[in-house]
Nucleic acid binder design. Structure first.
Lengths: 180, 180
DNA sequence: GATCCCATGTAATCGGTTACATGATTCC
DNA sequence: GGAATCATGTAACCGATTACATGGGATC
């Protein structure tokens, strides 16, 4: 069973949201998907080139006034099909998310409980901030009530993200309590 | 800010649990940590060699009866210090866990809602099985009435894992409901 | 002149997987 | 003889990051 390269599909997907250049793709992922996806220019530019070679996208040189020139990428019909094929392809098993917190918790007997607790409290604070960020984004989207077709799914994603973050906060608190 | 190689520390940690050989380390991770960590021999053996070179561990050739020879690794004092140093080192920010489910959800407008729902139902079933596995392991540990110093922390880890899994199941259900 | 944003790209390197190679021992 | 388990290792490859290189335009 060969593993598929998800980054290709992430880029394919982003190209349907109005982002057209490598720079914009990077910005979109850093700003909107940054809690569950990331990417570097070292991947973006070569991948875009490859997508064109495979006929999944086309490029157009675009001259801008007041800004540097840029290359705009557009999905082809074939590219859209490829995206849809990937979307409906089911997860056969859960990918292992390497979790540093759980790993450290597992080796907890090698340090004083209060040190583990401090570690968890620190992590919990970070999670709390993340949760608040989600809430902020959510209300921004709702207020702007943009008619963008993507918004609905963006909110689903945020909501799912909130569930996970809340659970992690709960897990931290619960563990801290047990360590006391 | 340079990123530290956590795999080294995972191996360092496992060496404190009674696992002594590369083979045993692999087994331990596959059997006990498989939901939040994984590793391959291609990492284990070179890393063990490196740990010895750095004075964090020592090797001993061990002849066994009825089984092939093996190499047993032991943490040095320096190795234990290194492990403790890593353990107490706080997370400065949350590492990005690339999440295929969230990514696909984000691009949901490109397919029929029922397709997205089927995808989520499938995922939810996988999560449910995982949750039951956690419960199974938990009761096994509790029944064996632990004298191992690690057991307590193993249960903390399991408990935390249950929180996260339960939340993901909740997130799936909630999203499915919204898609109806 | 300095700094920031926009914009594109590559080379070196790293972390990790996969596939391969080897071989002892036990159990059926 | 064949399969399963125990055991160690390497080379090729892949996905991704980091550091570097370049440069236009706007703003202060």
């Amino acid at each position: 069973m060969k593993k598929i390269n998800q980054t290709r599909y992430a880029i394919l997907g982003i190209l349907t949201t109005g982002c057209r250049t490598g720079y914009q793709i990077k910005q979109m992922i850093d700003n909107s998907l940054n809690h569950f996806w990331k990417i570097s220019y070292g991947q973006i530019y070569p991948t875009l080139k490859q997508l064109v070679e495979e006929g999944l996208a086309t490029v157009e040189d675009s001259v801008q006034e007041g800004k540097p020139d840029k290359k705009e990428y557009f999905l082809t019909e074939k590219g859209e099909e490829e995206l849809r094929r990937w979307l409906q392809f089911p997860l056969e098993d859960i990918p292992v998310n390497k979790n540093e917190v759980l790993l450290k918790l597992f080796f907890g007997r090698h340090q004083a409980n209060h040190t583990t607790m401090e570690f968890l409290i620190n992590y919990q604070e970070i999670l709390q901030k993340r949760y608040e960020t989600y809430e902020g984004i959510e209300s921004t989207i709702r207020m702007h009530s943009l008619d963008s077709a993507d918004d609905k799914y963006w909110l689903f994603t945020l909501n799912y993200g909130k569930w996970i973050t809340a659970a992690e906060i709960g897990g931290c608190k619960d563990t801290i309590k047990k360590l006391e």
